[in-house]
Each structure stands twice: as structure tokens, then as C-alpha cells.
């Protein structure tokens, strides 16, 4: 057994309020900052680890996930039922595509950019205690065309890509199963959807995820105070304990992509979070030195 150092990169205070539902950390190599969202506070945060400087912007709706673009400070935001463009510097949002009619009542949740610059993003019924499976998984190309990859989803999470092995990972959290599919980066087609990791005997549920430079899948084990690392053949080879009960999603960042940033849930949800350990607060953004390098986050390729 060894140890890792975990730092607190952001915590809410009297000025900002505590983080309610932290999700979707994304490292911008161009800006050397980490963007992440607080879904229930309708916020997108921007963390500069060099300066320790944190900023946020408040949107009109709940941002489930974000994608970088080639333009500095321009983000594609999956918000409520639609994709919108956000200009970080002036704070203006511009609607782009409605992925579902607003009347469905769903909201957008986990999303990732594939290696070719498409965004894969899922929808869900906002009240997870209702156990509805009204969500779908969408693939949005740069020309604005949309493919429905999967339907009847409860809580879409764990989307991550391994370009070397031509894989896409996906987890419908309530099923406690991480799935993998063969993913053709050129065409966007995915085939052979199959189980990759069964959380059955493991504590917690699979939440957000990322793939490191070795092709290993880092899964946030929500409700289980931990992250697990799974090798490409499905073997768990590490388990890192974190000081909050509900870690939600990891992403590698920092100058050499060697810092694992992890978001977490604060007061959101139907089940209150357990108090944090060692001075940490539920909802904190954590930075962990895991001694592993990540992969650069692709940019959404917009025509």
C-alpha cells in the first residue's frame, strides 16, 4: 500500500456558496486551466492551478457537460435540453442545437469529445430517485448532425475514449455496469457494445471517467469515497481513496497532464452527502498526484 497526495483546488465559501453538484472537469491545454461545472448552481468554473485563481460564470440553465473548442475561451455547453456556445470572456451564450424538445423534462448530463472532435453526450430525468430511464445518448458532429447512439438510459455517465484501442466507454450509473464499444473514429460508428466492468461486487456506482495515457480507465466510484483504475483488459489495478463520499468525475490536467482533478457532489441530490474527511468539504474540487499521465482533451471541431 502506498499513498497519494490530495489537494483541495476549490472549495465553496460564504461568497460563492458551497458547490452543489460538481461535474465534468476538462483541462484546456491551450489555456492551462481546468473548466468544470456545478450543475445545480448553473455555473461553469475555471481553475488556474498555477495562480490558484478561480472564476465562475452563471448560466441560464443547468450545464451537464462542456467541450473545448479551438477558440480560446469558447466552450460548447450541454445545458438543459440544448447545446449552446459560451464565450467565457464576455459571458454570452448562443443557442445552437436542441437535442430534445424541452417538453421531455430531461436534462443533458455527462459528455465527452471523441478523438475526431464529435461530442457524445447523454440526457436523463433530473430526479434520479424517480428511477426513470427516459435518457438517450447522442453523438453530435461538427456539422450539427446528431446520431442517437442509445436510448432508455437512466443516468448517462462514464463516457471516455481510448483512441489507440478504438474504444468508447459508457456507464448507465444505476445499472452499475461500465460498457465498452468498438469506436471508429473516422466514421463515428460504434459496435460491439459489451460489459467492461461489473460494479456488482464493488462499492459505489460508476460515475464520470477518463482514460489515461496507458489506456487505463479511471472511474469515479460515487458513494464509495474512491476512484478505481481499470486496465484495458478489465482488471482493477488501483483504488485511490478520496476524502469525500461522492466523487463524480476525474480528468487529467496540469502542465504535463499528471494531475488528476476530481469533482464531487455537495448538497445536491436526494441523499445528503456524508461530511468530508480531513478538512475536505463535499463538493470540493480535488487535485491528486497519481503518478500517471493523462491524454489531451480533444476540441470539438466546429465547421
Amino acid at each position: 500500500m502506498s499513498a497519494v497526495e490530495i489537494r483541495r483546488a476549490f472549495t465553496g465559501d460564504e461568497l460563492t456558496g458551497e458547490t452543489l453538484l460538481g461535474e465534468c472537469p476538462v483541462w484546456s491545454e491551450a489555456e492551462q486551466v481546468l473548466y468544470w461545472v456545478d450543475i445545480d448552481r448553473h455555473r461553469i468554473h475555471r481553475h488556474d492551478p498555477q495562480s490558484g485563481h478561480n472564476q465562475y460564470r452563471t448560466l441560464e440553465g443547468r450545464p451537464g457537460s462542456i467541450a473545448l473548442t479551438v477558440d480560446i475561451g469558447r466552450l460548447l455547453v450541454a445545458m438543459e435540453n440544448q447545446l449552446v456556445w459560451l464565450d467565457w470572456f464576455d459571458g454570452e451564450t448562443t443557442p445552437w442545437i436542441d437535442l430534445e424538445p424541452p417538453t421531455t423534462g430531461n436534462r443533458l448530463n455527462d459528455g465527452r469529445t471523441d478523438p475526431a472532435g464529435r461530442m457524445v453526450v447523454g440526457t436523463m430525468w433530473p430526479d434520479t430517485s424517480a428511477a426513470k430511464t427516459t435518457g438517450s445518448l447522442y453523438q453530435v458532429s461538427c456539422d450539427g448532425s446528431v446520431a442517437v447512439l442509445q436510448t432508455d438510459i437512466g443516468v448517462p455517465n462514464g463516457i471516455a475514449f481510448d483512441p489507440e484501442r478504438g474504444r468508447m466507454y459508457f456507464a448507465d450509473s444505476p445499472t452499475r455496469m461500465v460498457m465498452v464499444a468498438d469506436y471508429d473514429t473516422d466514421t463515428g460508428e460504434h459496435r460491439n457494445l459489451r460489459p467492461f466492468l461489473d460494479y456488482g461486487p464493488l462499492p459505489g456506482k460508476p460515475d464520470g471517467a477518463c482514460v489515461d495515457a496507458d489506456g487505463c480507465y479511471w472511474s469515479a466510484s460515487i458513494y464509495a469515497w474512491s476512484l478505481i483504475r481499470v486496465t484495458p483488459d478489465g482488471t482493477i489495478d488501483r483504488r485511490v481513496e478520496v476524502p469525500v463520499e461522492k466523487p463524480t468525475m476525474p480528468a487529467f490536467g496540469g502542465p504535463d497532464l499528471e494531475t488528476l482533478f476530481v469533482t464531487s457532489i455537495g448538497a445536491a441530490g436526494s441523499k445528503p452527502s456524508a461530511p468530508g474527511r480531513d478538512g475536505f468539504t463535499p463538493g470540493d474540487l480535488m487535485a491528486i498526484d497519481v503518478g500517471v499521465q493523462g491524454r489531451p482533451e480533444p476540441c470539438f471541431a466546429h465547421l
Binding site: A3, V4, E5, R8, L15, V240, E241, A287
Partner: peptide, 15 residues
């Protein structure tokens, strides 16, 4: 907002 927050903690890393 400002501030790098604390020196961090050591946590369990099971290999």
C-alpha cells in the same frame, strides 16, 4: 477567487 488551498493530505492508494 484566489488561493491555493492547503498543502493537501496523504491518502490511501491501493495498488
Amino acid at each position: 477567487l484566489t488561493g491555493a488551498l492547503g498543502a493537501g493530505i496523504r491518502s490511501v492508494d491501493l495498488r
